[in-house]
């Protein structure tokens, strides 16, 4: 194609007035081996258009939504958390009931239970007697007071 026609087309091209067919002519010209040296600066431009039109996505389009996937995983995670929570609660709850009975110590033999109870009560009353013992002094004061101030 004549050079002046190409130049004309280029001028029109930059004004946005070329038709698709004319633009195709330009693309063909710039992809050919013979491009006038002063027009070579436009070669990459038209070359790029051709390359860019070939670009394709790497992954194929699929109809199943990607968004459902996280939701599924979230529901699985949630159910695991709930199960763990219930299990943990049950474990704590039931072992909490069992613990006191084992720690307080129960006796199957009544005789032994009686002895242990006596021992415990004796220990208690001994402590109470210690407290009363220290109150003996107070009683002494009371007696002495009665000797001094004879009341009617």
């Amino acid at each position: 194609m004549e050079l002046d026609k190409i130049e004309q087309l280029l001028e029109k091209y930059f004004e946005g007035e070329t038709t698709l067919a004319e633009e195709q002519q330009l693309k063909n010209y710039f992809s050919s081996a013979v491009v006038a040296s002063h027009l070579q600066q436009y070669q990459p431009l038209f070359g790029y258009y051709a390359v860019a039109a070939q670009e394709k996505p790497q992954q194929e389009f699929h109809l199943k939504s990607n968004q459902n996937q996280p939701l599924k995983w979230i529901s699985i995670a949630a159910s695991v958390v709930i199960l763990l929570g219930v299990g943990f609660f049950a474990f704590n709850h039931f072992s909490a009931i069992e613990k006191p009975s084992s720690e307080l110590g129960t006796y199957d033999d009544p005789q032994q239970a009686f002895e242990q109870t006596q021992k415990a009560l004796a220990m208690l009353s001994k402590q109470v007697n210690v407290g009363i013992g220290s109150m003996q002094y107070v009683q002494q004061y009371e007696n002495t007071k009665d000797q001094i101030f004879i009341t009617e």
């Binding site: 091209y13 930059f14 004004e15 946005g16 007035e17 600066q41 436009y42 990459p44 431009l45």
Partner: peptide
């Protein structure tokens, strides 16, 4: 569309001549 296209093409040309 035509006006914007022309403007865009001229901007591209300007930048390309600069580098050229």
């Amino acid at each position: 569309v035509r006006v914007a296209l022309s403007r865009a093409r001229k901007t591209i040309r300007e930048n390309m001549t600069k580098t050229h």
